[in-house]
Design a protein around this nucleic acid. Sequence first.
RNA 1: GGCGGCAUAGCCAAGUGGCUAAGGCAGUGGUCUGCAAAACCAUUAUUCCCCAGUUCGACUCUGGGUGCCGCCUCCA
Length: 487
Amino acid sequence: MTIRIYNTKTGKKEDLQTIKDGIVNLYVCGITAYDYCHLGHARSTIVFDMIVKYLRHSGYKVNFVRNFTDIDDKIIKRAAEQNTTTEELSTRFIQAFHEDMISLGNISPDIEPLATEHIPEIVNLIEALIDRDFAYESAGDVYFRVNKFKNYGQLSGRNLDDMQAGARIAINDQKENPMDFALWKTSKPGEPMWDSPWGEGRPGWHIECSAMAKKYFGDTFDIHGGGKDLIFPHHENEIAQSECASGEIFVNTWIHHGFVTIKDEKMSKSLGNFLTIREMLEKYSAETLRLFIFSAGYRTPLDFSDQAMKDAEAGVDKIYNCLATVASLDSDDLGKLPQIGKKDQTKLSNLEVRLQAAMDNDFNTAQALGYVFDAVKTVNKICTNLPDSAKPFNLQILKESGQTITKFMNILGLIKQNPQHYVQEKQDALMASITISPTEIEQLITERNQARTDKNWARADEIRDLLLEHNIEMKDGAKGTTWVVRT
RNA sequence: GGCGGCAUAGCCAAGUGGCUAAGGCAGUGGUCUGCAAAACCAUUAUUCCCCAGUUCGACUCUGGGUGCCGCCUCCA
């Protein structure tokens, strides 16, 4: 099967064709390190984590680079506010970012380059652009000459005339054209600076990615990713810089994911309506967040709400519960398992193929999750109906289905815990909140069961109500009465 | 103003030129239970924003309209 990916550049899904057989070079724009990351960043990192894991699962060697922007206007401003250096500030938030990534269960990129560690590469690239007349110096700044690049606007589907008509561009006398963007900026006194042929200054925002991508992947590479908001101007400008400097196509496939919204508005620092990863993880597990994120296509806007998170949590529990049940099936149960209907059997044995087909289709996690839940339902159905005349073969089907589900969910960074432990731990966590001891509960259950034997329903109900007041819910099963803490 | 995207049941959300329009949450009826819970079964869009067109046939393609969102300034 071929993996098909929606390419922003062409607006179509295309078969993935790598430059080198079996190798994917992937560059993702990372964060500007000046604050804690919010759910939007979480979606970005989780989506690309899934993409990398799925590509690797599909047999590709993926070289995954994600940068940090550790010098820019916002960092300078924030550092000044906090009375610290840009270096201290960015180091602190890069550290926080790494902590968040571990909490979320994301793998690390192979390389995490910093802009400030690539100043020579940046300067070289700017010099190449000046040599080719695509850039010019103006009072210590260097600007890219957008008029010189005939493809400017190809990624975002714009043209220079339309954009200038918009007139939302700050007037700057140093520029030949208002749309020209800075490659190098003169530093003001007290700001961080590096030596350059144009005097002391610092790089513009876009140039770092062009320089670092070139360093690690050469002039042309396979996939470049980021949020939709980076399409213009950031990625447009990267293309301009890189292609004008090298004369080669910069990137073959552009992947852009959608935003996380709150009440249908984009979550962003400027709007102040953001929730940090840390805040949200106090309330919900990383796996709940991941399921929530994967319940929609990565390009769709995703609206965050408590209800949506509760739905996702119920989904995670549902899968774990099913897998815990399957894991608990042992040879004693063999005789009780039913023959599995032909239809269910086919459904389960096709699961892996269906999951793969969904993922191959532009990483359609929502559809894949649909298949997983469908399989969970089927497995539950089989486990629940336990008539006689079963064959070991049936147990095998259930165990294999459980393995397929687990293996696939692991690609999404989900179901990484032992299901039985998960169910148990969830229970244990709830235990802390209850106001009655397990011993007392057991005593009351024993008493209730005696009352039930005596057909003293009044007393039995009384005990159940009493336990319910303590959030304890009983389940009368064939093997006796079990209990759980109600969520 | 320019450009791009989206519109599918109470909510979230896949999907396809013709086969039952996935799945989750919530709801309803049932099985089970002394009553419950959990689980399971059944059920919840004769229809996919509106209007035209293409087609033997469109929710899916084309054109127009409406609404929402995003980008054009920093942004994942």
